[in-house]
């Protein structure tokens, strides 16, 4: 699984740094997901060093870090580089939204005024076909239906996330959203369930999703 990211426009990032009076920067670049998406890693780090230096920012340090989103890993990085951190105005992170927030959470106690900015937009939790082709196949909804839908998720493959599709927007197996270019998720499910001789599951009337446990502020805490 990869958290898929895309690059924000450079000017958007530069503007936010200028607005926040940032001069001295520590770049943290994700060596895992963002590296795979070509929005982080070593190449991303070098690219952003060049961009920022050209714009007059001082790069105090720049590191590629595996698991920017792991607070333990980030805490270690911060401990090892505390001298540099004392000198900076902000972190710029080439990661997903988790990486940004991990840095905020791990730095905010010791450096309450530390600013953290991100160069990427976080798109989705993605499946990789090959580099440069990533697809949303799971939303992490917390109530997995895949055992009943032939291993194809209606929440992500149906543009309306319907529990009882296909809808009237399906034409010849294609979806009305995106000009009939993408497959209708519910037709994919129908074809799979037919292939495994379980159309009884397709015929099942499903209740609306229960959002009482799967909204926001979710946590998994088991010890």
């Amino acid at each position: 699984m990869v958290v898929i990211t895309t690059k924000k426009p450079v000017d958007e990032v530069l503007n936010v740094l200028k607005e926040n009076n940032v001069k001295k920067i520590f770049i943290v670049s994700c060596g895992v997901c963002a590296a795979l998406c070509q929005t982080g890693g070593e190449d991303g780090l070098n690219e952003w060093k060049e961009i920022l230096e050209k714009e007059g920012f001082e790069i105090v340090n720049g590191l590629v870090v595996d698991d920017v989103c792991d607070n333990r890993e980030m805490a270690k990085v911060l401990r090892k580089n505390s001298e540099d951190i004392e000198k900076i105005d902000a972190f710029v992170t080439l990661s997903c939204g988790l990486g940004v927030q991990s840095i905020v959470e791990t730095t905010s106690k010791k450096y309450p005024s530390m600013k953290v900015f991100v160069t990427n937009n976080t798109e989705f939790m993605g499946m990789t076909e090959r580099i440069g082709r990533f697809y949303m196949r799971c939303l992490g909804c917390g109530d997995c239906l895949l055992n009943e839908t032939g291993g194809i998720c209606p929440i992500t493959t149906c543009a309306k996330a319907l529990m009882n599709g296909p809808c009237g927007g399906m034409v010849d197996g294609k979806c009305e959203v995106g000009n009939y270019e993408r497959d209708c998720g519910w037709v994919l499910i129908y074809n799979r369930l037919k292939a495994i001789d379980r159309l009884d599951l397709f015929s099942k009337l499903r209740d609306a999703r229960d959002w009482s446990e799967s909204g926001h502020q979710r946590e998994v805490v088991f010890r």
């Binding site: 543009a159 309306k160 529990m163 009882n164 599709g165 927007g169 009305e176 009337l205 999703r209």
Partner: peptide, 28 residues
């Protein structure tokens, strides 16, 4: 009871598509 055409098709594509129910669960 209808699902409704996706907002992406219309003149307010920026709006949030809801689809909390679907056309069958609305009947129910």
């Amino acid at each position: 009871s209808l699902t409704g055409d996706h907002p992406n098709l219309g003149d307010m594509p920026e709006t949030k598509p809801v689809f909390d129910l679907d056309s069958a669960t609305l009947v129910k």
